[in-house]
């Protein structure tokens, strides 16, 4: 065995042993009264969020409001990932972009079955992703999930009709703009709260601006706004990641 493997094995055994050793001290699996499950924090979210935010999906409430600051950076992480990939791989020169235009015209020559299937699926997929986004308050879903699905619809176009085809619908600069707007929508919501005299991301004050009846509903609506922002960014970046990785940054050809 190579020395590196022995080192790795020893490291793994020691770490694993350490982690197994600590499991003895954990509360029983599924214990509703364990410190984590029965903490004041957890109970507060379960019992109070319906009063404080009127959102039935507790995960959405915690994600977009109580820990909204985290989620903003989560969006930033996605944004960074896309940008980082473009920075590492490059985003195509103008000559290559012209080539994209030309090859997009040859779209019709691609495989018919693929294209027709994609034509059928893409609208449904996009519609469903909008549903997932909008219904995040009531069911599993929200900006990330909706955004990923929307991004997937562009990826499907690229798979079926070639990357240039997808790029002619959502160009890289366009996607970057969309991603930036998404983060701006999220951060801007927080900034508006600050301009109205409250702390950053304190949505309740937005009832002055939003068609919301009161502070609670203002939070409810603001969460949707930030989820939409997240969806913008995720959609754009998912597509950028695919486009860059599948073409090694040249933005032509594709699978």
């Amino acid at each position: 065995m190579a020395p590196m493997k022995i080192v790795a094995l020893i490291t793994v055994i020691i770490t694993g042993g350490l982690l197994l050793y600590a499991t003895g001290d954990f509360p029983a699996w599924g214990d509703p009264l364990s410190p984590a499950n029965n903490s004041a924090l957890s109970r507060h979210y379960i019992e109070q969020s319906r009063v404080e935010t009127a959102v039935p999906n507790l995960v959405t409430a915690v994600l977009a409001d109580y820990r909204g600051y985290d989620t903003m950076f989560e969006t930033v992480v996605v944004f960074v990932a896309g940008l980082a990939i473009l920075a590492v791989l490059g985003q195509g020169t103008s000559r290559e972009r012209a080539a994209i235009q030309r090859s997009a015209e040859r779209y019709q020559e691609r495989d018919m079955i693929n294209i027709m299937t994609a034509r059928l699926i893409v609208p449904v997929l996009q519609l469903f992703s909008l549903y997932v986004l909008a219904h995040g308050h009531y069911s599993p879903g929200g900006g990330f999930q909706g955004g990923v699905m929307f991004g997937a619809s562009f990826i499907l176009i690229a798979l079926a009709g070639g990357l240039p085809e997808a790029l002619s619908r959502l160009s890289i600069p366009g996607a970057l703009l969309l991603a930036g707007l998404g983060v701006l929508l999220y951060g801007g919501t927080g900034l508006v709260c600050m301009m109205l005299g409250q702390n950053f991301l304190d949505y309740h004050i937005l009832h002055r601006l939003l068609p919301a009846t009161d502070a609670v509903m203002a939070r409810y609506h603001a969460m949707l706004i930030v989820e939409i922002g997240v969806a913008f960014t995720v959609t754009a970046i998912m597509f950028i990641i695919y486009a860059a990785l599948s073409s090694r940054g040249r933005m032509t050809g594709g699978l």
Binding site: S39, L41, D65, Y66, Y69, N199, F200
Partner: peptide, 10 residues
Amino acid sequence: LSGWGRVNDT
């Protein structure tokens, strides 16, 4: 952030 403050010192 988010203006919730502390409830029962949490």
